[in-house]
Design a protein around this nucleic acid. Sequence first.
DNA 1: AAAAACATTTGCCATTTGGCAAAAAGCGAT
DNA 2: ATCGCTTTTTGCCAAATGGCAAATGTTTTT
Lengths: 185, 185
Amino acid sequence: MKEFIKYLLQFGNLNQQQIHLISSKAAELELPKDEYFWEAGKMPKHIGFLVNGIIRVAYYDNKGEEITKYFFDENHLIKDWDNFEATFYLQAVTDCKFITFTRKNWKELSDTILDWDKMINKIMNKHHMEKLDKIGAMISQDATTRYLEFLENFPNMANRIPLSYIASYLGITQSSLSRIRKNIV
Amino acid sequence: MKEFIKYLLQFGNLNQQQIHLISSKAAELELPKDEYFWEAGKMPKHIGFLVNGIIRVAYYDNKGEEITKYFFDENHLIKDWDNFEATFYLQAVTDCKFITFTRKNWKELSDTILDWDKMINKIMNKHHMEKLDKIGAMISQDATTRYLEFLENFPNMANRIPLSYIASYLGITQSSLSRIRKNIV
DNA sequence: AAAAACATTTGCCATTTGGCAAAAAGCGAT
DNA sequence: ATCGCTTTTTGCCAAATGGCAAATGTTTTT
């Protein structure tokens, strides 16, 4: 819980009472490897702060191929934009630990804490920018460069994520990534 | 100006007085082809609503290559997230017409109109989602598919944008795009 | 320990895309 | 119509990546 508060304080101020309120609304969740935090087609039940582990965002394209869009790692707020059904799913790549909030509790925080929405918006915008930067930079680069950038963008994650997911994120085949790795070392 | 109001009303309600206030703060700007709306390294001077024409977002990568990241077309709000220097530039691909607001005037709207920030946030989020969808889908697809998707995502723009910009957006060479076009027809 | 299931690497060859330069086409000014 | 300039198309060949299947390595189950 401490981590989450510390994280929030980067984006605005909170007094002791507010911190207490936030803590009282939170719950802990342990999500074992391969299980889903959100599922496509269902309304995300809770909002979560990832304390530990790696989550991947993925979906099936029109050819039925599973595509990994993105990875989240430690200390990351996972929240949808509006109250929409998810069009993709969030799956634990490793065992994960979350701080979660029900929609109802989240709403109460938003109604009670004056700058809550503003803080959350700041966070979401920051995330969006980062995502766009990472993904946008991949286009117009060859596979090797993309992989090297992946290593920079997601430090300490390469050895915790199966090759197949990384390949899918990079938009290349598993064999290609395997060869690229061989050439880099 | 009407277009902008109509656009805003999609994202919230405004009374007659508010509409009048917004209009009073706005200015018109005609930007000829090839000129810049924002320049990299400079603080964007104004916020703009693109009424007519096409704008491209571009930057130079570390090899000095010019990369086109995105295109904006008619009826699109162009606003930065925070008060940061732009890290890229916005250039008119065709002659453009804008409704613009100085930062000062924009701030006044934000301070005066109760739901202004909320509306603008909705708009920005929507744009961001669209951008992510379009760009994200490109990875993991071959050049031909990317071009076909470009045609869907940016209808009526293909013939108004030079091939070189489109190729750069798709992350392929001009010659490749030229060949792809030949094969499609 | 062996078997089964799964993940990664490798070989072989086909296809796609890039690099470079020249040719062709388009366009504006004269 | 012609010249000069820019954009787009082509040809040729090299390099990168994909597709498929077999081999190898790893992990889990029995």
